[in-house]
Computed example of a mutant assay.
Amino acid sequence: MTAGETQALLETIAEMLANGLETTTEPFPETDKEFADILADLRRLDPDDLEGKLVISGFVDHPYGPDRQRCMECMYYLVHRRWCDLPELAVPVEPDWWCRLWRI
C-alpha cells in the first residue's frame, strides 16, 4: 500500500468514526479465549470489509475506558507508520484511537 493509499484509508476510517459508526466496544476481552473469539469473527469477514473490521474490533476515535487507553500504547501499534499491525485488522490508525483488541 502506498503512502497515499494509506492516508486515504486513514481518512475514510476517521470519517466513518466521526459520522457515528456504532462499534462493539464491550465486552472487553478479559481472557485469551475471548480475545481469540473476536479474532475468529474478524477472520470470517471479507478482507476488504472495513466497516465490519471496525465494528467487531470496537474502534473509537478517542481514548477509551477509565485508564484512557489509546492505540499509541498498544503492542500492535507501529508508531512511525501510524498502523495497527494485528494481522486481522492491518489498518492505519491515529495514536489517540482505541479498539477492544488493545494489548500492552
Rank of each mutant, 00 (worst) to 15 (best):
residue 71 C to D: 02
residue 42 L to C: 02
residue 40 A to R: 11
residue 100 R to Q: 04
residue 64 Y to Q: 02
residue 62 H to P: 12
residue 82 R to G: 11
residue 17 L to N: 07
residue 17 L to A: 05
residue 29 P to L: 09
residue 94 E to H: 09
residue 31 T to I: 05
residue 73 E to A: 14
residue 75 M to W: 15
residue 37 D to Q: 14
residue 31 T to N: 00
residue 49 D to F: 08
residue 103 R to C: 13
residue 78 L to I: 13
residue 104 I to F: 15
residue 41 D to T: 15
residue 91 V to G: 13
residue 97 W to R: 07
residue 55 V to C: 02
residue 84 C to R: 04
residue 96 D to C: 12
residue 42 L to D: 00
residue 102 W to S: 04
residue 84 C to P: 05
residue 24 T to K: 10
residue 74 C to D: 00
residue 53 K to P: 01
residue 94 E to N: 05
residue 41 D to K: 15
residue 40 A to V: 02
residue 91 V to A: 14
residue 34 E to Y: 01
residue 4 G to T: 08
residue 85 D to V: 00
residue 2 T to D: 02
residue 103 R to M: 15
residue 40 A to C: 06
residue 13 I to F: 15
residue 48 D to K: 14
residue 102 W to K: 02
residue 82 R to I: 01
residue 72 M to N: 06
residue 59 F to I: 06
residue 4 G to D: 07
residue 99 C to A: 01
residue 78 L to R: 06
residue 81 R to S: 01
residue 90 A to H: 08
residue 40 A to Q: 13
residue 15 E to F: 13
residue 3 A to R: 09
residue 36 A to T: 10
residue 45 L to F: 05
residue 47 P to H: 05
residue 74 C to E: 03
residue 99 C to I: 02
residue 51 E to P: 08
residue 40 A to I: 06
residue 22 E to F: 08
residue 37 D to Y: 10
residue 103 R to P: 07
residue 52 G to E: 00
residue 39 L to Q: 14
residue 58 G to R: 00
residue 52 G to R: 03
residue 92 P to F: 01
residue 70 R to K: 10
residue 100 R to C: 05
residue 24 T to L: 11
residue 24 T to Q: 11
residue 44 R to Q: 13
residue 95 P to N: 12
residue 22 E to W: 08
residue 86 L to K: 03
residue 43 R to A: 06
residue 32 D to Y: 06
residue 33 K to E: 15
residue 104 I to D: 14
residue 98 W to A: 14
residue 78 L to M: 10
residue 5 E to Q: 13
residue 92 P to D: 01
residue 102 W to I: 13
residue 104 I to T: 12
residue 103 R to S: 13
residue 95 P to A: 13
residue 39 L to N: 09
residue 45 L to M: 07
residue 13 I to C: 11
residue 33 K to M: 10
residue 6 T to C: 06
residue 16 M to H: 15
residue 15 E to H: 14
residue 12 T to F: 02
residue 85 D to W: 01
residue 22 E to T: 07
residue 59 F to A: 07
residue 89 L to Q: 00
residue 36 A to K: 03
residue 8 A to G: 03
residue 32 D to E: 11
residue 24 T to S: 08
residue 51 E to V: 15
residue 11 E to R: 15
residue 83 W to G: 03
residue 9 L to F: 06
residue 12 T to Q: 12
residue 55 V to W: 03
residue 103 R to G: 14
residue 91 V to M: 14
residue 60 V to C: 00
residue 75 M to P: 05
residue 38 I to Y: 03
residue 99 C to M: 04
residue 6 T to G: 03
residue 37 D to R: 14
residue 50 L to W: 01
residue 15 E to K: 12
residue 52 G to L: 03
residue 28 F to M: 11
residue 64 Y to S: 06
residue 99 C to Q: 01
residue 93 V to M: 12
residue 65 G to C: 00
residue 95 P to L: 12
residue 18 A to P: 09
residue 73 E to N: 13
residue 40 A to D: 09
residue 51 E to G: 08
residue 10 L to M: 15
residue 84 C to W: 04
residue 80 H to V: 15
residue 37 D to W: 06
residue 67 D to N: 09
residue 15 E to C: 10
residue 61 D to I: 02
residue 17 L to H: 09
residue 57 S to I: 10
residue 34 E to A: 08
residue 4 G to Q: 09
residue 45 L to K: 01
